[in-house]
Amino acid sequence: MIKLAVLPSIFGASLLAATSAQACAPSGAVELTSLQETPFQAYAELGLETISKPFEIDLYFCGDGIEKIYRIKVDAIMPAHQHGMNYTPEIYGIEPGIYQISGMFFHMPGMWELQVSTHSASETDAQSYLFTLDITAR
């Protein structure tokens, strides 16, 4: 199971409304893709240096609707080898729309698919979006 991060409700809508894709993510962050039509974008700053060492990822969600993000899930798989990571990453909510992921660990070289999903709080207003990013590890 992925550890879930729950953000406190004090994060204000006015702050979130002012957030833009250009402003909220650092210039070096890489945009994740989604097959869905999403109201916001996802960006990642990767701390990956080499395989077989734990690394961190900073995630940024930019655009409309990030106030509805109640929790996120993060994982990675190696599609060509039919396996995922051997460790469960830890997810920390830093600010509205900003998360730090620790304990990411790629144990083999090659292409990994980072998978990030966002989830709303309400069962009746269930909005979840899946973002992915292909990462080549050496």
């Binding site: 395989i51 077989s52 083999m108 070289p109």
Partner: peptide, 15 residues
């Protein structure tokens, strides 16, 4: 071989 026997020690340390 280097998929698992990687890095300076020639192992990824996993299973």
């Amino acid at each position: 071989c280097a998929f698992c026997h990687s890095g300076p020690a020639f192992t990824n340390g996993e299973f």
